Simulated assay, not measured.
Amino acid sequence: MSKLGKYLIFLSKLFTNPEKFRVYWALTMQECKDIGINSMLIVTIVASFLGAVTCVQTAANMDNPFVPKYIISLIVRDSTILELGPTITCVVLAGKIGSNIASQLGTMRISEQIDALEVMGINSSSYLILPKMIASMVTFPMLVTLACFLGIYGGYLAGWLTGSVTQQEYIYGLQFAFKPSYVIFAIIKSVVFGFLVASIAAFQGFYTKGGAYEVGKASTAAVTNSCIAILIADYLLAQLLVG
């Protein structure tokens, strides 16, 4: 059977013979803390500097005096909301969250903790993985929203401190021809990316065989496959929702 077929069967097992709701609630809240709160620092750093670099580079390439300065912030706004915020942030999270999920489940598999859960009659895939998927699909949109705000604010600070654009021009550019649908598009992308990262990483870790070396390989494969899946989904969603 192909890996895609195994992956689809793996997803179907998540919703068979589930545990009680209160069990998932406690586990999901813990995963939200581990995935969301513990990722805020890296998201803050990456998003702020991405916005600042975008503003500086855009200003450096706008030598035409007939082009108004507020176009700089318009470009920062649209590129941050449409691409830099959701896609780059989720690629970074794929490295942090994806490797963590894969290594955690891989270690549990080779140490036979997953086998012990199955002997006890617990649906191990649903018990271990479903809370991680739900938490990722909930916290990724929050982190992407934070990243978009910080990216735009980072561009504001960079433009103001370097003198590339005034504060009034930057704020005017943010408001000029704004499309609220872009924000909805970014949220949809972040939910899909959160699902892909959590499910692919869990799949790689859950079926790990061998020892510590194989856990490392599973973690690497989880990050690589998640990034590829994010980029493919990014194109498909852009073509479907924007194109």
Results as ranks from 00 to 15, higher is better:
Tyr24Ile: 05
Tyr24Arg: 06
Tyr24Val: 10
Thr28Tyr: 03
Met29Trp: 13
Met29Phe: 15
Gln30Met: 08
Gln30Tyr: 07
Gln30Gly: 09
Gln30Lys: 12
Gln30Asp: 13
Cys32Tyr: 02
Ile35Ala: 03
Ile35Gln: 01
Ile35Asp: 04
Ile35Pro: 00
Gly36Ile: 08
Gly36Ser: 13
Ile37Thr: 15
Asn38Gly: 07
Asn38Lys: 07
Asn38Gln: 08
Leu41Gly: 07
Val43Trp: 01
Ala47Trp: 01
Ser48His: 01
Phe49Met: 14
Phe49Trp: 12
Gly51Arg: 01
Gly51Pro: 03
Ala52Ile: 04
Ala52Gly: 06
Val53Lys: 04
Val56Tyr: 04
Val56Arg: 02
Val56Gly: 04
Thr58Tyr: 01
Thr58His: 01
Thr58Asn: 02
Thr58Cys: 09
Ala59Pro: 04
Ala59Tyr: 02
Ala59Asp: 00
Ala59Gly: 06
Ala60Gly: 11
Ala60Phe: 09
Ala60Tyr: 09
Asn61Cys: 12
Met62Lys: 10
Asp63Ile: 11
Asp63Gln: 14
Pro65Gln: 13
Pro65Tyr: 11
Pro65Asn: 13
Val67Ser: 14
Val67Thr: 12
Val67Trp: 11
Pro68Gln: 11
Lys69Arg: 10
Lys69His: 10
Lys69Gly: 10
Tyr70Asn: 05
Ile71His: 09
Ile71Ala: 09
Ile71Met: 11
Ile71Thr: 12
Ile72Ala: 00
Ser73Asp: 09
Ser73Ala: 14
Ile75Arg: 08
Ile75Ser: 08
Ile75Gln: 10
Ile75Cys: 08
Val76Tyr: 03
Arg77Phe: 00
Asp78Arg: 03
Ser79His: 09
Thr80Trp: 06
Leu82Arg: 07
Leu82Ile: 12
Leu82Trp: 02
Leu82Asp: 01
Glu83Thr: 11
Leu84His: 06
Leu84Lys: 04
Pro86Lys: 03
Pro86Gln: 05
Ile88His: 02
Thr89Lys: 01
Cys90Asn: 06
Cys90Asp: 08
Cys90Gly: 07
Cys90Ile: 07
Cys90Leu: 12
Val91Gly: 05
Val92Phe: 08
Leu93Cys: 04
Leu93Gly: 00
Ala94Phe: 03
Ala94Tyr: 00
Gly95Tyr: 06
Lys96Leu: 08
Ile97Arg: 04
Gly98His: 01
Gly98Val: 04
Ser99Lys: 02
Ser99Tyr: 02
Ser99His: 02
Ser99Asn: 08
Ser99Gly: 11
Asn100Phe: 14
Ile101Cys: 12
Ile101Glu: 06
Ala102Ile: 04
Ala102Ser: 11
Ser103Asp: 07
Gln104Pro: 10
Gln104Phe: 08
Gln104Thr: 15
Gly106Ala: 07
Met108Ser: 02
Met108Lys: 00
Met108Pro: 00
Arg109Met: 10
Ile110Ser: 01
Ile110Cys: 03
Ser111Glu: 15
Ser111His: 15
Ser111Met: 14
Glu112Trp: 11
Gln113Tyr: 15
Gln113Met: 13
Ile114Phe: 11
Asp115Phe: 06
Leu117Pro: 03
